[in-house]
Amino acid sequence: MDTYSSHGKLVRDRIPQIIRERGADPVTYVAGPDEYRRRLRDKLGEEVAEFLGADEESAPEELADVMEVVRALAMDLGVDADHLEKIRDGKAGERGGFAKRIVWTGNR
């Protein structure tokens, strides 16, 4: 089983390079499969929280970050972006989307 350090966080692949270009020396390691999945789930929560706290100007950028983590989670589950879209499209065809802004308040 992986050692899941409480320190550090999952970062995008190019972040260590960007840190080096700015003159610092990043300390990193590659997470094992179990830790990676846990850290991706943590990252999803982090990115969703950032989206929920964003103003309208920064919301699209934060939403793109959510999508990047969702894509990584899907790939980790063995589902590529096209298959994920097919699943989403199938559910939308079966149950609809959210475009009509319907709010359910219960049954009579």
Rank of each mutant, 00 (worst) to 15 (best):
H7Q: 12
E85F: 00
A99C: 05
V66S: 05
G106P: 06
H7T: 11
I87W: 12
E50T: 01
K43H: 05
S6E: 15
I18V: 14
V11I: 14
F98G: 07
D89W: 00
M67P: 05
M1W: 03
D2Q: 06
A81F: 10
A24C: 09
R39I: 14
L52K: 15
R22G: 14
Y4I: 14
E68K: 01
A99V: 10
V69C: 01
P26G: 04
G90T: 14
D42S: 08
L73N: 09
V11Y: 02
A59G: 06
T105G: 15
G8W: 09
M75T: 13
I102E: 14
R22V: 07
F51Y: 15
S5H: 11
F51T: 13
Y29M: 09
Y4N: 06
P60V: 04
I19E: 07
T105W: 06
D65I: 06
D13I: 00
I18S: 00
S6V: 12
D89Q: 13
L77R: 14
D82F: 04
K100E: 15
K43A: 06
L40P: 05
G23P: 08
R39C: 14
G78S: 05
G45V: 11
P33N: 10
L52A: 13
V30F: 08
S5K: 09
V103M: 07
K43W: 00
I19Y: 06
D13T: 05
G23T: 08
V79H: 01
V48T: 04
E62T: 07
G45N: 12
D65S: 09
F98I: 12
D76T: 08
R14W: 08
E56C: 05
R88D: 11
A64N: 03
A81N: 12
V66G: 04
S6C: 01
D13L: 02
R22M: 13
E21H: 07
V11N: 02
S58D: 13
L73E: 09
K86E: 15
G23R: 01
A92R: 14
R41K: 13
A64K: 01
Y29L: 11
V27T: 15
V79D: 00
M1Q: 06
A64R: 06
Y29S: 11
R37K: 13
D2K: 01
D55E: 11
T105H: 13
K100H: 12
K43P: 02
P16G: 08
A59W: 06
D2T: 12
R38L: 15
V30R: 12
